[in-house]
Amino acid sequence: MKKISIKFLSTLTVFTLVFFTSCQNKETNEETVKEVKEEIKKAPAARIASPAPSPFSTLEQKVGLTDVTIEYSRPNMRGRTIFGDLVPYGKTWRTGANANTKVTFSTDVTVNGTNVEKGSYALYTVPNQKSWDIMLYSDANNSGLPKEWDDAKVVAKVSAEVVKMPMNIETFTITLDDLTNNSGVIGLLWEDVYVGLPITVDTDKAVMASIDEVMKGSPNANAYYTAAVYFKTENKDIDKALIWVDKAIEMTKEDPKFWMLRQQSLIHAKAGKTETAIAAAKKSLELAKKAGNDDYVKMNADSLKEWGAK
């Protein structure tokens, strides 16, 4: 009887331990599940990485001293007819995909004779078969077209002739080409169509102010050289350019530069001093050969031939 009691008690003890352990594990599991659910709630929704149908692009270009930045999304043709179908004629187009195309100027610019203050603008167009209206709109943050169009926000408008291209451009493309010190053309290309928006910048005013300021002090060789080349390029006082480039060459005579001598030869030639132009070109040619610069070798050789050098 005593043995049975001990056995019974042992069994009861084991059962009790298992029962309490089971209950404890259940409570622990419930707490764990609760914690996991809370973490899932906090975790961001899973996202699948995939390419955008109309990839975003940023174009940055210096025009003279003005920084021009264009931000836009680029849809593809994908076998579709674009103008006159996907993009209707006679209706305002966002000029790209997704949010409006944004153009930012770091200085004031001129568009079609109209001053456009530095800042950001939405670029909108009205495509037609033979010409497009291209507009800069002062509200630069829209999901495509503005909810309510406001003509008062059109700061500049240009009618641009459509140029038909000999091939299709699959992806909508914006360029900034035909660059000079004072101008450029924002080009829009898609399907077989090209239209351009000319812009001009007042680079000369800024450069001349800089030259005047530097020349009041103690200009170094590079300052004289840069000023001389600018005067030559912009058809300004060639006699001043001559004086400045000669000073630059004199200041670097211990370590002559073939590109400086090249510009000296061109400035002398433009000033009608052919003999000294030839002498400078020969020095530039010799140094370019030593430097292994084939471009300058050819340019100098061509000029020497043009000027009748022996």
Rank of each mutant, 00 (worst) to 15 (best):
residue 49 A to C: 08
residue 118 K to P: 00
residue 56 F to C: 13
residue 89 Y to M: 10
residue 76 N to F: 15
residue 46 A to I: 12
residue 80 R to L: 07
residue 32 T to Q: 14
residue 72 Y to C: 03
residue 101 T to D: 09
residue 44 P to A: 07
residue 92 T to Y: 00
residue 71 E to G: 03
residue 123 L to P: 01
residue 102 K to E: 12
residue 108 D to R: 01
residue 137 Y to G: 04
residue 73 S to F: 08
residue 68 V to L: 13
residue 110 T to H: 03
residue 63 V to W: 05
residue 52 A to K: 09
residue 53 P to D: 14
residue 80 R to H: 11
residue 79 G to C: 12
residue 64 G to I: 01
residue 67 D to N: 15
residue 139 D to C: 13
residue 90 G to S: 04
residue 33 V to T: 10
residue 32 T to K: 09
residue 54 S to A: 05
residue 119 G to V: 02
residue 131 S to L: 14
residue 95 T to K: 04
residue 30 E to T: 09
residue 83 F to N: 09
residue 50 S to D: 04
residue 76 N to P: 12
residue 92 T to R: 08
residue 72 Y to K: 03
residue 45 A to H: 07
residue 70 I to Y: 11
residue 56 F to A: 15
residue 72 Y to E: 01
residue 127 P to Y: 03
residue 105 F to L: 05
residue 39 E to W: 03
residue 32 T to W: 05
residue 129 Q to G: 06
residue 73 S to D: 12
residue 72 Y to P: 00
residue 107 T to D: 10
residue 119 G to H: 05
residue 121 Y to V: 08
residue 43 A to S: 12
residue 84 G to E: 09
residue 87 V to I: 12
residue 139 D to N: 15
residue 126 V to I: 15
residue 51 P to G: 00
residue 85 D to V: 02
residue 104 T to G: 10
residue 93 W to H: 02
residue 87 V to D: 03
residue 117 E to T: 14
residue 79 G to Y: 12
residue 101 T to K: 13
residue 130 K to G: 12
residue 102 K to Y: 03
residue 55 P to F: 03
residue 67 D to Q: 14
residue 134 I to W: 05
residue 50 S to E: 11
residue 92 T to C: 00
residue 100 N to R: 05
residue 73 S to Y: 08
residue 133 D to L: 13
residue 96 G to F: 02
residue 89 Y to Q: 08
residue 70 I to Q: 07
residue 79 G to S: 08
residue 70 I to T: 04
residue 86 L to K: 13
residue 46 A to M: 07
residue 66 T to Y: 07
residue 86 L to M: 13
residue 56 F to M: 15
residue 30 E to I: 10
residue 75 P to F: 09
